[in-house]
Design a protein around this nucleic acid. Structure first.
Lengths: 264, 264
DNA sequence: CGAGGTTTTGAGGGGACTCAAAACATGTGG
DNA sequence: CCACATGTTTTGAGTCCCCTCAAAACCTCG
């Protein structure tokens, strides 16, 4: 199995790319060649301001992988109501290995300042089904499935859960996704979204979002300070949200990734 | 273009299969061979009672295409709340060309008595990438995209629209999908769902679903009788729902009434 | 030290929910 | 062909979750 040395958090000039490596390796062991290829992407990085449009109506303006910052697929109604359909975190890709879908009527927008790498090289390799990238190809297939699962989760949240439950569910999902890329310490992680953006994700008003978070603080479920959030009681949160683990857990993870999993 | 003779509605011993042909041909021209292959599936048909489980937790118990009746992907919360994630109509497939996704935690259930055909033969041909089935293969790719779009639509409905708007949007979506398979006459079609099932789809209570439909009748937007529904004013419905055309079809969308957007 | 964005608070309203029961359908068996 | 059982649609009443409007308090930073 490939021995990959992960750093807890990037300190070298550009170690953010390790998040991408971690993400894929957590799904599927990769060859040295593939990991090298991914690391090579780090040289072609770029920053975008908050609000930057990564794709418009399903037509990706570029094929990029987010290595820092958050983005969201959004849809806007004529009267201004806005819905964030899905959140994109470091390690997530835009326009790679996915056929353009103009019908989606959604655009992908940077919700915070973003750091991305150009991945056209990778995309090309995948399109021509380069056998040396079979592992990454497979990882993308798995990611496609997970993306669908997240859409379904979002539907259940919006359709059947209260604001309180939705919030709990989203926080647990975010934690799980961030763990994979090494962005959770203890049960604390950076939550760079404004309450307004969370509200737009969860289909509630800002005011109510705020009150819901207050209630969760009073209930000793979360603690927030300066952009960081700490989940104080994963068990209770999971019960409240009916949250079930989605990401490959220790039991289903390939051995190579086992070493780097925190259990809980 | 292959000249395919469509029947308005099946009268021959088994013409339901033409719905499947229509569906695919509407997306992508098919070869005679492919159409023959599809028609051949008709011999292996089967009926299932309402409630029948076509797939469990993303593990399809079979690879089948629905030719009559409706089904739904559903998820149930521990306390009994149920959400219908997506509706499957005649022409829609289960477990074909889609990798199993156990994480989805959803099952596909017959919402009405169902008539399906076994499509393992087709599935196999697609898996081994039989070049003679390239057209169908492409059609499935397009369908995959449309399915994602429908999930996004569902998210917007549940997250940002009122019950009234949601209902209008769903009815327009259903009409568009049914037109493709030849199941709409004028603007009337069979709506075999109970109000309870519609409520579970749209994330509202049965009672509210009922009152919303009543309001739409009073507003002369719809007319219902004995399982049939007639959309009386497509343009107004489209404005109310912010519905934009997804399928290749006729009607368009000026504007007239913004009456009950937020009412009821 | 303001400027502009974000978070909080307050007040009032309405959409949607629950509980409950009646009114209607539909289908089954006698 | 009617009586009964079961399922679906309607109504009514009371409640509360969440919304909107508005303004104040709080950052964060140039």
């Amino acid at each position: 199995m490939t021995a990959v040395s992960f750093q807890k958090s990037p300190r070298e000039p550009f170690m953010f790319i390790e998040r991408v490596v971690r993400r894929y390796v957590s799904l599927r062991p990769l060859s040295e060649y593939e990991i090298g290829l991914l690391r090579g992407l780090a040289s072609r990085r770029e920053t975008h301001p908050s609000g930057w449009e990564l794709s418009n109506d399903g037509r990706p303006s570029a094929r990029r992988i987010i290595v820092d910052g958050w983005a969201g697929r959004t849809r806007v109604l004529p009267d201004g109501r806005r819905q964030i359909l899905a959140l994109l975190l470091p390690g997530d890709a835009v326009g790679i290995c996915t056929p353009p879908n103009p019908q989606a009527l959604s655009s992908t927008i940077a919700l915070t300042p973003l750091l991305t790498v150009d991945a056209t090289a990778l995309n090309d390799a995948l399109l021509r089904r380069d056998p040396r990238c079979a592992g990454i190809h497979e990882a993308f297939a798995i990611i496609g499935g997970l993306n669908e699962v997240m859409l379904l989760d979002q539907i259940v949240r919006l359709g059947r859960q209260t604001a309180y439950e939705r919030t709990a569910h989203l926080l647990l999902e975010l934690r799980e996704r961030l763990v994979v890329v090494g962005m959770v310490q203890g049960d604390t992680f950076v939550l760079p979204l404004t309450q307004d953006q969370m509200a737009e994700t969860l289909g509630v008003s800002v005011v109510h979002m705020n009150r819901t978070l207050q209630q969760m603080r009073r209930d000793h479920l979360i603690e927030t300070k300066r952009g960081h959030i700490k989940l104080l009681d994963l068990k209770s949160l999971a019960v409240i949200a009916d949250f079930r683990q989605r990401w490959p857990s220790a039991s289903t993870l390939p051995q190579s990734a086992l070493a780097n999993r925190k259990t809980r």
